[in-house]
Design a protein around this nucleic acid. Structure first.
Lengths: 343, 343
DNA sequence: CTGAAAGCGCTTACAG
DNA sequence: CTGAAAGCGCTTACAG
């Protein structure tokens, strides 16, 4: 019963379960129940405990709770990039749901590197997360093994595919590429190129390219390797890529950019250079950011339901964490073509 | 010594310090030292322990460590919004530094609500963070009290001011507003308006407005209340605000928008409507996003060093966490005026 | 509906 | 440089 205070001066004097229990005249477990599963406590005791919590300004120590239960109220969210607005919007959707459900997000950024992803997963599992959301279906074997043996609900997002580790919410990037290809062909374009960056790492963009290729093959149109650059996508990079590509392949009459950042940059640059869009060159993107509707000409693009994807994924995950889940483990969230003036 | 395994089937069989210690033939504390303070361990034991860690695939349980030491390797980062790219870039800067230093970010979003901020701070302190970074110098009294009594290093960012709770890195939004005012006046504009949204919550934008007002007063120019809207800033909202404001106050010859999102939207809308910029109306923003250099005319704006602000703040915080900090607790990170074609 | 005991996997604060 | 003991603040798995 001797106080350890003299030995641990660094530890701030904190209100603990025990203090609340003493104040309320109940046991510690009862306080714990009031905090976590109030329905299991009688009205009388619950009122006493709630009052004691208020009086003392008790804040539960989540770390202790996590250690005791081997499960923290944290969800790992691992994405390839934060400079890409797509992931920001997905993260917002996830946050919307996690916050209401009382879970904290632990955010990791792999920078499109599967080894980094593996290290992140290993390190972050040390937090005993209640669940994991990560981008993509492509991971190292060890990442898969770590996630599986963690016995936590796992949600893979962004792309929809056949063999998820556990659950999956995403869309078919291949079909999206095909869909844009069909649109361009139907508009009469015949010399169609694809511009993207770091396609080995951003393999979802590569899937879109493959979808486009499939479409071009079907129509007996010329297929070209993608025009690539080895840097992060941005409007500036898209602007440069447009000029370089038109120089290298002046016969092109349409360009499908890997994303809207690139496409909007290209559009604005074309305008500045006096290159008619779509008269000289048609321009299309992928994402469906709001800015695409404001530029002139407005951008033809594929709209992915980013925030909703995050919400759906987080909702399914939370249901599984709470063991209320049933039914589908795989959701194709779809996409839509938004036809603007640029094609 | 009896195994609890039969009583806790849910807990996955995990490799712990003890297992590593047994394998390496040392005590648990020695393993702990190899993980946390390897310099304190002899080369011989360190090698043995490192090998055992590799063999067993040991991953430290951060939760247990945090409970024992009353300090987790987490840093709270609390911002008002994730839909504002400013905060995303600041967060990136913070991440850059925290990741290298081995800290995990716990992200909270107040939605510009000081009560929500207070609740977030209270709840997240339950994670025993090593430090806290939060946006702004304005908080509830209870938030301040909670942070102070937590005895953790606290860093307030975004704005630079006189009485931080602990440390502060930011810029003067008042001076930024003044500076833009001086630029507009020097260009010959005389009827200058300010457009922004939710200025009570986004009081930093209000500071920029006040700075502008001060400048207008100095030059004996007409001062107007800000033209406001009650929704999140976006290009779409800026586009609408431009049209509404020109309708309401056709005498205006220059508009200072609270941020670049609004200003770029206005610029693109003006172009679409055939309103000459800056001939009919000059347009200026605040942030310095890359898109402002691509639109036509290019946007005059104030560039805030967002990513660097995050890096500097996180670097100072980590130094304090490690008790290596000295010198300045307050840094004015500054800003610069980028003159484009829109004014 | 309520509680006493044991334990989660680490680190602290010594002692040697 | 190394280690045995105690403890961090909770929750689990019983028993009643």
């Amino acid at each position: 019963m001797s106080s350890p205070a003299s030995r641990r001066p660094a530890r701030p004097t904190t209100v603990t379960l025990k203090h609340v229990a003493e104040r309320a005249g109940v046991s510690a477990i009862t306080v714990s129940r009031v905090v976590n599963t109030p329905d299991l406590v009688s009205d009388v005791l619950r009122a006493k405990v709630t009052a004691a919590i208020q009086d003392l300004g008790y804040v539960p120590n989540r770390v202790a709770g996590a250690l005791a239960s081997a499960e923290s109220r944290a969800v790992l969210v691992i994405v390839p990039s934060l400079s890409n607005a797509v992931f920001i919007e997905v993260i917002q959707g996830i946050q919307d749901v996690l916050e209401v459900a009382g879970y904290q997000m632990l955010l990791g950024n792999t920078q499109y590197d599967l080894e980094r992803e593996q290290d992140l997963v290993a390190a972050l599992l040390g937090w005993s997360p209640a669940g994991v959301i990560l981008a993509g279906l492509r991971h190292t074997e060890r990442t898969r093994a770590l996630l599986k043996s963690s016995n936590r609900p796992i949600m893979e997002i962004m792309e929809h595919g056949a063999r998820p580790i556990d659950m999956n919410v995403g869309l078919s990037h291949y079909k999206a590429g095909e869909s844009m290809g069909e649109h361009l062909v139907s508009r009469g374009y015949r010399e169609i190129g694809f511009i993207g960056g770091r396609l080995n790492a951003d393999y979802r963009a590569m899937h879109r390219f493959k979808g486009l290729e499939r479409c071009l093959a079907r129509h007996d149109l010329r297929r070209r390797p993608p025009f690539t650059h080895e840097c992060k996508s941005s409007a500036q990079v898209g602007a440069e890529a447009l000029m370089r590509t038109l120089d290298a392949a002046p016969e092109l009459d349409a360009l499908f950019f890997a994303n809207d950042d690139l496409a909007v940059g290209a559009l604005l640059r074309a305008q500045r250079e006096g290159i008619p869009v779509p008269g000289r060159i048609a321009i299309a993107g992928f994402n469906g950011f709001g800015i695409g509707e404001l530029v002139q000409p407005s951008l033809t693009t594929i709209v992915s339901p980013r925030q909703r994807m995050g919400q759906v994924a987080a909702t399914m995950l939370v249901a599984r964490i709470r063991r209320e889940a049933e039914g589908r483990h795989r959701v194709d969230i779809g996409f839509s073509l938004r036809v603007g003036e640029s094609t």
